[in-house]
């Protein structure tokens, strides 16, 4: 029985994540981490970011080269221990903004919220804008949110790019200002968790935070981001059974065997992404694009 090829279809991914990890996936999930101090710090940080941003308008999208290599993901490539192999690639230095997405929608009217086919985006798509072709209170330099995976894909194609894979994103987000992999540093984790402490009702900061060692900004601390293989992350790595009831095996592959268990912040991302469908849009889900080297 050599071939894998697998299975385990579970009805509601939210249920699945909850069953495996005990995490309830809600819009306001971040409140779990909240504490007065953390909230204050996050607020100060976002004001700093805002100050940095108001300095000048952002021009054409920039992409920074990342060397890639072997990377210990929280999701082993084979479900056991295999590291991910990441080819050199380029990553957009900032998430796509409202202004950029507005320009895209004007050039490709099939992605206007009043014209998009419901197979590509749910009803909440871009509803925070004042009109299908006007931002209103949504700030031009805020990352665009309430975009579906299909819309994010289409946007990236317009930049002759694609969405990053999960491994590419996780690898990039492991960096701090000095190191490509800062994950073992408690300060890195605290920074990520600080973000979770910000109430989701609070306005999104604008893009343009501090650059990391690769020259990439805002990977942690601004929005959740779509990845190309968002819906494949918790597909079991060796789930051959057809009955779909083999929850332990599924969880074993997707969650229990996760490496770096202390990396709770990253687990949250995977849980969030896995709970979504490609048409879903949420208040905090944005994206950035990637290109081959």
């Amino acid at each position: 029985m050599a071939g894998r090829g697998s299975v385990t279809q579970v009805t509601d991914p939210r249920e699945r994540v909850r069953a495996c990890t005990g995490l309830a996936i809600e819009e306001n999930h971040r409140k779990w981490f909240s504490s007065q101090t953390l909230r204050m710090r996050a607020w100060q940080l976002s004001m700093l970011m805002l100050g940095a941003l108001l300095a000048g308008p952002v021009v054409a999208a920039e992409y920074a080269p990342l060397p890639g290599g072997t990377f210990t993901s929280v999701l082993p490539a084979d479900g056991k221990a295999a590291p991910a192999k990441i080819a050199p690639f380029r990553l957009r230095t900032e998430p796509v903004t409202n202004a950029e997405f507005l320009a895209f929608v004007k050039a490709h009217p099939q992605w206007r919220r009043d014209q998009v086919a419901p197979v590509f985006a749910d009803r909440r798509y871009l509803t925070h804008w004042a009109a299908p072709d006007a931002l209103g209170d949504a700030l031009p330099q805020q990352p665009v949110t309430r975009v579906s995976w299909f819309a994010a894909q289409a946007y990236c194609e317009s930049e002759h790019a694609r969405l990053p894979s999960w491994y590419e994103w996780e690898y990039a987000a492991a960096a701090d200002a000095r190191r490509a992999d800062a994950r073992s540093d408690p300060a890195w984790r605290e920074r990520v968790l600080q973000w979770y402490s910000r109430p989701s009702s609070q306005a999104l900061p604008s893009v343009g935070g501090a650059a990391d060692v690769h020259g990439v900004r805002d990977l942690n601390g601004v929005v959740w981001e779509w990845v190309d293989d968002f819906n494949a992350l918790l597909v079991g790595s060796d789930s051959r059974d057809q009955d779909g009831a083999d929850k332990m095996k599924f969880c074993g592959a997707g969650a229990v065997s996760m490496q770096e268990k202390e990396n709770y912040a990253t687990l949250m991302r995977i849980a969030m992404l896995s709970a979504l469908k490609a048409v879903d849009t949420t208040n905090n889900m944005g994206f950035r694009c990637a290109k081959p080297d």
């Binding site: 071939g3 894998r4 090829g5 697998s6 299975v7 385990t8 279809q9 490539a77 084979d78 479900g79 295999a82 192999k85 494949a232 597909v235 079991g236 790595s237 060796d238 789930s239």
Partner: peptide, 9 residues
Amino acid sequence: LPDGDFNHS
């Protein structure tokens, strides 16, 4: 998967 196989629904 690393060995070229796929897991899929």
